[in-house]
Design a binder for these strands. Structure first.
Lengths: 121, 121
DNA sequence: ATGTAACTTAACCATATGGTTAATGAACAA
DNA sequence: TTGTTCATTAACCATATGGTTAAGTTACAT
């Protein structure tokens, strides 16, 4: 029972950390797709694509509606909300980061001027 | 080279898909920390924490300033921008997801009522 | 000069991830 | 019935991940 919220974030961010899965979500944003249709654009076996879909499902980003032998996958974007909010919190630090980085680079510059122990192995 | 942008997203989302690393970023948002300071709150070895920091660095979310034997880590939130924009694109689908889900659940309801699946439009 | 503190690298381990092929099952078509 | 299609499970493989301890490197303190 570590943290329900945190595990949700783990699952969502992990699901998004793969180009195949992001592309699948892009396709699902247009309209629902069967597993085969979802898999078709990718140079991998149906089994591999199916595993990706399961990862998306585990993150709650995809819902599956079974009709006969075909599984129709629907996008459920709601779990992204938490991730989006998490990241949005850091928007304020982008500019601060720029300032920090400037300071940092100036410091490195200064260090580079010094002849002392700035040598690399 | 697959796609520069895509690999950046891979790295950022992967870096964020771990509670330890997210906590580290939270701490770095307050102020820069040395590696030891960053590692201190966690029940793991310094080596393990150091690996997490390297993942954050690989994603560009942390910059390191070496001063003597201590490494000061700075937050650089900028790489989050791409991820945030990616997710923001799906905000519009949250409500659509709700509608779809309703339809989906109603369909499942209907299917549950029917004795043998034979209803296609 | 010696010791200690801050980190990294190296080696190792268990489990997870991303892929494969082969076999299976269930639904549809003939 | 027979065959084909949609998708899964099973078994396997290579590599990545997240952790460990031990050993090394470099800077600082005494």
């Amino acid at each position: 029972m570590v943290n329900e919220q945190s595990e949700q974030l783990d699952a969502v961010f992990h699901a998004l950390a793969d180009p195949t899965r992001r592309a699948m979500l892009r396709n699902l944003a247009r309209e629902p797709h069967s597993v085969s249709d979802l898999a078709a654009p990718f140079a991998m076996s149906l089994v591999a694509a199916s595993k990706h879909i399961r990862v998306l499902e585990r993150a709650g980003l995809v819902r599956r509606q079974i009709t006969g032998r075909t599984h129709i996958c629907h996008l459920d974007a709601r779990p992204m909300h938490g991730g989006l909010e998490w990241m949005r919190h850091y928007e304020q630090y982008w500019h601060r980061s720029l300032d920090d980085l400037e300071t940092l680079l100036r410091a490195e510059d200064a260090a580079a001027q010094k002849p002392a122990g700035s040598d690399r192995k």
